[in-house]
């Protein structure tokens, strides 16, 4: 009798064990092994700021094409700015790890009410000329009025979920999506 009971218990345990295994196997719903974990969709690799005044075009490019880590980011300025000139500025964000390169500016524009660009510059006065759906500044399009000859720097900052409208970076809050600085910009 005792033996019988033991056998019964063992049988029961075996059944439970197997059902547990079956259960765990079934719960493999989301399981994948496609190894596509190395895909950074949100990445911004390149920030391009193009300043145009007729045929006088100056392009500033900040780029980190292998993303965070690895090779350090590089920045380049195509040439000097002309003193006392009004340039039309446009900023472009791209993810160049995708092929073709993904234009992130479009995404930012679509969510204009949640984003805003800020410019900190010692080479001239920058005014934002575009607005979001709520008629608040957005900053993809700008004008830059240069001063007298000399040199300086320019920092472009993109804030996610800033306070809108705001009186500038000091009370905008939000979290930073982009912050790049171009140093040694010459004005002549």
């Amino acid at each position: 009798m005792k033996k019988l009971n033991t056998i019964k218990t063992i049988k029961l345990l075996a059944v439970l064990f197997i059902s547990t295994l079956a259960f765990t196997a079934c719960s493999d719903d989301d399981h994948d092994h496609d190894d596509d974990h190395d895909h950074e969709e949100e990445l911004i690799t390149t920030v391009t700021y193009t300043l145009t005044n007729g045929t006088d075009i100056v392009t500033m490019i900040y780029s980190d094409e292998d993303g965070d880590g690895g090779n350090p980011a590089t920045s380049s300025i195509s040439g000097p700015l002309t003193a006392n000139t009004i340039y039309t500025g446009a900023v472009k964000l791209e993810n160049k790890t995708e092929s073709p390169a993904e234009d992130i500016t479009e995404e930012v524009k679509a969510e204009g009410d949640e984003h805003e660009f800020f410019y900190v510059s010692t080479v001239g006065k920058i005014t934002k000329t575009d607005v979001d759906a709520n008629n608040n500044s957005l900053g993809i399009e700008t004008t830059l009025t240069t001063g007298t000859a000399g040199s300086g720097s320019l920092t472009i900052i993109l804030k996610h979920e800033p306070k809108k409208p705001n009186s500038g970076l000091n009370d905008a809050g939000g979290s930073t999506d982009v912050e790049v600085t171009f140093n040694n910009i010459t004005i002549q």
Binding site: H31, D36, D38, H39, E41, E42
Partner: peptide, 15 residues
């Protein structure tokens, strides 16, 4: 461990 695909970000912890 399975770093489930589709996050659009690089996995902090690998498979």
């Amino acid at each position: 461990n399975d770093a489930v695909a589709g996050t659009g970000a690089r996995a902090l912890i690998p498979d």
